[in-house]
Amino acid sequence: MTGEPAAARWRLAVDAEQCIGSAACAGACARFRMTDDGRAEPVAEVVDAEEAVRDAAECCPVEAITVTDADTGAPVAP
């Protein structure tokens, strides 16, 4: 992977309705954590672009994670 330009910022969201609490994202990427009621949430809403974030979104079994470009709103993953 060539990676994103260093300045890229991504916006993270987890759809709590869809999330089945598998913890696949939180285990793969420190930008996600599990809440007390067993759902995932982003640690911060906007983060520096990082491959692990995209991977976590692509591994979510129910596509509950969306990653968009924080500036342009363009979809990044899944």
């Binding site: 793969a28 990427c29 692990a52 991977d55 976590a56 692509e58 591994c59 079994p61 129910v62 596509e63």
Partner: peptide, 19 residues
């Protein structure tokens, strides 16, 4: 373990999503 696991899992994860 991650990150090796993530790299390999992501090659097939898309086929097994709910959708």
């Amino acid at each position: 373990d991650p990150p090796d696991h993530t790299r390999l899992r992501k090659t097939v994860a898309g086929v097994f999503t709910k959708r």
